[in-house]
Design a protein around this nucleic acid. Sequence first.
DNA 1: TTGATTGATGACAGCGCTAACATAGGGCAG
DNA 2: CTGCCCTATGTTAGCGCTGTCATCAATCAA
Lengths: 346, 346
Amino acid sequence: MNEGGLGPKPRGREASGAVRMSDVARLAQVSPITVSRCLQAPGRVAPETRDRIRAAMESLGYVPNLVAGTLASNRSRMVAALVPTLAQANHAATIDALTTRLNQAGLQVLLGSTGYSDIAELDLVRTFLGYRPQAMVLTGVTHSPEAARLLQGVGIPIVETLETGTTPLDMAVGFQNAAAGATVARHLMARGCRQPAVLTHGAASDTRAADRHRGFVAQVRACGGVEPLSVPVDPADLAGGAAGLERLLIQASGVDAVFCVSDTLALGALMACRRLGVAVPERLALIGFGDSEPGALVQPALSTVHVPKAEIGDMAAAMILARLSGQESASRVVDLGFRLVVRDSG
Amino acid sequence: MNEGGLGPKPRGREASGAVRMSDVARLAQVSPITVSRCLQAPGRVAPETRDRIRAAMESLGYVPNLVAGTLASNRSRMVAALVPTLAQANHAATIDALTTRLNQAGLQVLLGSTGYSDIAELDLVRTFLGYRPQAMVLTGVTHSPEAARLLQGVGIPIVETLETGTTPLDMAVGFQNAAAGATVARHLMARGCRQPAVLTHGAASDTRAADRHRGFVAQVRACGGVEPLSVPVDPADLAGGAAGLERLLIQASGVDAVFCVSDTLALGALMACRRLGVAVPERLALIGFGDSEPGALVQPALSTVHVPKAEIGDMAAAMILARLSGQESASRVVDLGFRLVVRDSG
DNA sequence: TTGATTGATGACAGCGCTAACATAGGGCAG
DNA sequence: CTGCCCTATGTTAGCGCTGTCATCAATCAA
């Protein structure tokens, strides 16, 4: 008996004030563990008991504390995802698909954006791992060594998206950026272009863009074309694309085609061409990347490379779910390909 | 002494296997609470102790378990956010800004998309509250009564975005959709339109679109215009906009202006006009909503209403942070306004 | 009848961390 | 030298839930 006040003074903090499982249990006249089972596996609880418990939860407005559940069960029902930015439609589409699919399976998505910074990525990886997610989705396969070490240490499924060029940390789904660049190069050369150039993303950590650039240049060389001039742009937005194109035309007057590593850059370049009176595609062919919606609407309609944005999100979710349900997936790398979309601009 | 094996058989589960705070503490020769303090308030720990602890964390590869921390401290450092869809650029921009700002303050964002469904919203609200977020961001001010009850019960800051028409559950930041609709109507009437119509979003829970529609119609009436025909479209994508416009032209041949409740619909309508040979804006004026990027690039450039997407996300974050730091914000409703952008299409 | 099996529920301990209080030692005014 | 405050660190007891086993009654084949 501690009632006499003689024992060690009880000095607990006050509880959060919310309704707890034990409150529900008391009202339903069962033990807390039965309430827990009623939530996790209703089939293992007798129907009458179940109804009584549900009525109790309803009447008390009980909201299970998943944090406590996570700590006890070591299953957080969360998946962490990192993107460079959401403001770009292709990342948004991928995340949207990923989220939808994971939600259906009862998993929530913890989202962070790195702003194309390796430091921010490392920070976010560290923090997110602190929430003990059951899986992690990253953009691209290039990370700081420290981040890679952390990620491999935790032993959860990891999916890297948008890039399948090299060996992934764990799993990868996307396409081959270098091959996409090469395809564009082949197309332009076949079309008779003789002096192609590249508008590329200046951010060092956007290795996807760098890969496309590299693949393009290699293919131009292989076809015996003039060594392509390249102009880096950062940030890679519309204004950047426009400015980049102007710079490019100043540096080399003979350029007859430009591969822009993103549709956004291409659209900016297209605007600049309009302003400067450069005829597209007659004097200058323009090819983008990503098959964004505006590209199909402008005039001349933008030639580009279509990538399966939503499918990548879907597949990433599927790979995670398969792994979490114990299947050792046969293929750790899934290449969903890309497709050259030839429209008016080149 | 329990060593004799006489006490109750210890039947604990095995621990998660990860490095714990106590491991760090042992290596650094301090108590766990000092390690905890070193993470939360390094200033309250002596410099040499701090260095020893940090070295220990480094050498063990310690990743703090924030789930346990949340349970113990009742502070999750998470903010939950719900959007109808991420695949639409204006929501993505808002969330991007929100996330960036909250991350800077050490808060993570738990993101869910409702797909414009009240049922999905309720589900997500319930689940997210289970993670005990410190604040919640919603889109729009209309929710199921059940969701509203839940949200008001938990006592965390709640910000509703994109809409400031009615009384919020707690706080709101956005603009007045009805007023935006009215502004468009005034503009069209002043321009000499006599028979305007509306392409609107059919989803019942997109009350923002419905408000714009309502405001538009009311203003047309007030100006003495012909009662506007309206065509609902769902899903509100490009194809929907195109189909909607065709239906509209069939139903009423005298229409000389169309207010589309989103830029996406307007762009679809513009495509249809091109296909049908309808001159824009000569025969048909077209106004969108949202000031999306493609709208500025198409020809004729789309007239639209600019809304401060990123600013809304920023402000939502600021309101949350203010409240969490104890300030009772003076204004619970922040109207960031909108701006009619007249370009070529109307 | 009986032992084995199944189904429903409960007792106990502990997940990894932090709030609240406690303590020890040093500096310093008076 | 006393009493007080301040700084650095430690002790204790949970946060709210679930894994693991235990229990007890009902069912059923042999």
